[in-house]
Write a protein that binds this DNA or RNA. Structure first.
Length: 198
DNA sequence: ATATTGATTCAT
DNA sequence: TGAATCAATATA
């Protein structure tokens, strides 16, 4: 897939400069794109709300690890967890707010061969990107991609190919949290076979 | 259900 | 300086 193809446009800075609770469901059905041709449609997201959100990495302020979260919107925040996994968030809101949206699952749409090469454990296309660490692996996102500019950078971008977000996304609680586990800040495409968990 | 894995963070 | 935590995945 080419980012410059007709009818496909890169999401602009103004798109990202909003509250994650508004932005997260808007991100559904957008594309996460890599310059080498890999691309996937976003089917599951979670919002993290900075100082108001005990589950957010940014809750207790800026550290070396979460620095990208406090940087300008429209950049990636990539973190390492459970001793072995990388996960990708999109920084949003305004600089220094510490807002982000975690991308939890993609439906692969292009460069599927490259995704399988990057993630040999996946036996089917469904197993490629149905989880935050899985999609990061399939899309080649790790430490090096922390802080990558999605608005002006060459390597990665979020694209709008004209498919609108779903009219009625499913809204539920977030996955894997001990704090603020009751906040309904996870959204997914209702009928997608590519989400991480029902 | 359980093992894996190591950076980050918080409490001594 | 040490212990607990962790936006998870793989295998059984």
């Amino acid at each position: 897939m080419k980012a410059s193809a007709k009818g496909i446009r890169r999401l602009s800075l103004t798109f990202y400069r909003r509250d994650p609770l508004v932005l997260a469901p808007e991100l559904l059905n957008k594309l996460l794109w890599c310059h080498d041709g890999r691309a996937g449609r976003i089917v599951e997201v979670e919002a993290y709300h900075g100082a108001d959100d005990p589950a957010a990495h940014s809750y207790r302020g800026k550290t070396l690890r979460n620095a990208a979260m406090f940087g300008p919107p429209g950049h990636l925040y990539v973190y390492f967890t459970y001793g072995m996994h990388w996960c990708a968030n999109v920084v949003c809101g305004e600089t220094r707010e510490g807002f982000a949206v975690l991308i939890r699952a993609l439906q692969p749409v292009a460069g599927v061969e490259l995704m399988h090469a990057a993630r040999p454990r996946a036996k089917t296309d469904r197993q490629l990107c149905n989880g935050p660490a899985r999609l990061a692996q399939a899309m080649g996102i790790a430490k090096q991609q922390d802080g990558v500019d999605l608005v002006n950078g060459e390597a990665y971008a979020l694209l709008d190919d004209g498919m609108p977000p779903p009219d009625h996304p499913v809204q539920t609680t977030r996955i894997g949290l001990s704090k603020a586990a009751d906040y309904p800040w996870r959204w997914y495409v209702a009928d997608s076979a590519y989400i991480s968990k029902k």
